[in-house]
Amino acid sequence: MNRIQLKDQLENYRTPYEEEAEFIQDFIELTSDPLAFKRERLEGHFTASAWIVNKKRTHTLLTLHRKLGRWLQLGGHADGNENLLEVAMKEAQEESGLQSLSMVDSTIFDIDKHIIPNRPHVPEHFHYDVRYLLEADIKEPLQMSDESISLAWIAFDSVVDMIGYNPSILRMLEKTSKSEILL
């Protein structure tokens, strides 16, 4: 996949979630920026994430992010790679050690535009995060990367207690619960 294919997927992406629909056009416009996939684009850039679930759709794998101090899905910067599905798979494997990862679908599962706070040498900026739904074997041992404080499979019914209010995580959880009926 490249930026043209990503733009096509974004143009065809439909969501019933108002907060997501509000920034689809921002994502589409960003695909035409030559620096869109590089963190050197200081006002904001593409990232990719993996919403990882077990095969029975009862748990999701979350990381307690070291820099942000919040429970999040696994993912990271594109660093020039325009194939965001590939980025999501790579980041998920690097951050979890899971070898059993498989994609459920090659289409976009979710998108989120969120602000990253100012840190030394990095100004406040936006992440245009494209998310993909992945599956993994919940019994496979996890290997935490240095980007995490913790890494854990969280039961769907415990996610809210674990993360508090994070609308994008709750949206992905709801989407997973709805797609459960279709599987």
Score class of each variant (00 low, 15 high):
167 P>I: 14
69 G>D: 11
156 F>G: 00
65 H>L: 07
31 T>L: 02
86 E>I: 13
137 D>K: 08
116 I>D: 05
60 T>G: 03
159 V>H: 03
130 V>G: 01
171 R>Q: 10
36 A>H: 00
80 G>L: 05
92 A>M: 03
60 T>K: 09
101 L>W: 04
42 L>S: 06
136 A>H: 08
107 T>Q: 10
144 M>N: 03
61 L>G: 09
80 G>P: 03
123 P>M: 08
26 D>F: 00
121 H>V: 01
110 D>I: 01
84 L>S: 00
174 E>Y: 11
117 P>G: 12
158 S>H: 12
182 L>T: 10
158 S>G: 04
103 M>Y: 15
74 L>V: 09
103 M>T: 14
149 I>N: 11
97 G>M: 09
132 Y>G: 00
15 T>F: 07
74 L>T: 06
143 Q>K: 14
23 F>D: 02
74 L>E: 07
76 G>E: 03
24 I>N: 00
57 R>W: 15
96 S>Y: 05
65 H>A: 09
78 A>W: 08
114 H>R: 06
4 I>W: 13
175 K>R: 15
9 Q>H: 11
86 E>K: 15
61 L>D: 10
79 D>P: 01
95 E>K: 13
21 A>T: 01
3 R>N: 04
68 L>G: 03
179 S>Q: 14
74 L>D: 05
11 E>H: 02
19 E>H: 12
113 K>R: 08
75 G>P: 02
12 N>M: 01
102 S>Y: 14
162 M>N: 06
69 G>V: 14
35 L>R: 05
106 S>A: 11
67 K>R: 11
153 W>N: 03
131 R>L: 02
7 K>R: 08
4 I>N: 07
96 S>A: 04
28 I>E: 00
85 L>T: 03
91 E>T: 07
